[in-house]
């Protein structure tokens, strides 16, 4: 069974199929329609109803309610796919070279070592906001089902970023509402995580501005601006869509470390790995 799952995983992630049936921001490696039909990273059938339409719900004070369900997607499986058509990533030469080097060593993706995916990489696992715990929230949280079942903290009390921050996987986030858009400003990242499976890099100078807009009940748009003069010649904005999961879906406990059948711990290499990289 384990072998079957691995084979299915490899098949659905194989590069030629990656371009098929992908919705920007809703993929990330596991949700694409492969030759075996719509399956996720576990080889399980995906039979999702269409996301609901209609106006987004609001909290009693009129704020858009982002916490009424689970979201799927909203981050890059491929950062470049979120750019406007015809644009490419403004990588500095060293960053481009690093990305090319990473392409040769895809097993180095921290994701495959069960480390946090950082920001904005969330796919393909569900996540949710925790928002409405007071009438005037001082914090918001983002709960991730995977890959280490952890959370992000967003300060909503008007504070600014501290002058000195220890670099971390999720950085230091402050948020505010601009009309119906939640704007999350984050600095203080480490440079360990990859933006996507292609190894799109960043440095500790990374500054992200996420603009989350629930354009209807079932769709949440994340327009994220990447400002990292250490790795890019100019800031750029990529856009990804998250889809509301069906009612009743709940976050499960998912610790990659404990059941990592796909990554290095499972004795398997990345589907893009060269034959000579195959673990013996």
């Amino acid at each position: 069974m384990r072998t079957l799952l691995v084979i299915v995983f490899a098949v659905v992630c194989a590069d030629p199929l990656f371009a098929q049936g992908r919705v920007s921001g809703e993929g990330g490696g596991g949700e694409d329609r492969g030759v075996l039909g719509p399956v996720n990273a576990l080889g399980q059938d995906i039979r999702r109803p269409a996301p609901p339409t209609g106006p987004p719900p609001r909290l009693p004070d009129g704020t858009i309610d982002l916490g009424d369900g689970l979201w799927i997607g909203g981050g890059p499986g491929d950062m470049e796919s979120g750019l406007p058509k015809g644009e490419s990533l403004p990588l500095l030469p060293w960053a481009k070279a690093l990305m090319e080097e990473r392409a040769k060593r895809p097993n180095d993706d921290p994701y495959y070592w069960c480390l946090p995916m950082g920001v904005p990489r969330v796919t393909p696992y569900p996540w949710r906001f925790v928002q409405n715990y007071t009438i005037k929230p001082t914090h918001m949280f983002i709960l991730h089902e995977a890959i280490i079942h952890t959370y992000r903290q967003i300060f909503m009390d008007g504070r600014t970023h501290p002058a000195e921050l220890d670099p971390s996987w999720f950085g230091h986030s402050i948020g505010a509402w601009e009309k119906d858009t939640l704007v999350v400003d984050t600095v203080g990242y480490n440079d360990k995580f990859w933006f996507d499976r292609k190894g799109t890099p960043h440095t500790t100078q990374l500054h992200t501005i996420e603009r989350w807009t629930r354009i209807n009940r079932g769709t949440l748009v994340n327009a994220i601006t990447i400002d990292d003069p250490g790795a890019y010649s100019r800031p750029f904005t990529a856009t990804f869509n998250a889809r509301l999961a069906p009612p009743g879906d709940e976050l499960m406990e998912n610790f990659c470390q404990e059941n990592n059948q796909f990554g290095i711990a499972g004795g398997h290499t990345h589907p893009f790995a060269r034959p000579d990289q195959e673990k013996k």
Binding site: Y133, T150, F255
Partner: peptide, 22 residues
């Protein structure tokens, strides 16, 4: 602790990965 009308969420700090419980 975040206490909501229909759920309470526990947040932890732990080197194994800062877990939460719903």
């Amino acid at each position: 602790i975040v206490q909501l009308p229909a759920e309470t969420i526990f947040f932890y700090e732990d080197i194994s990965g800062d877990p939460y419980r719903i």
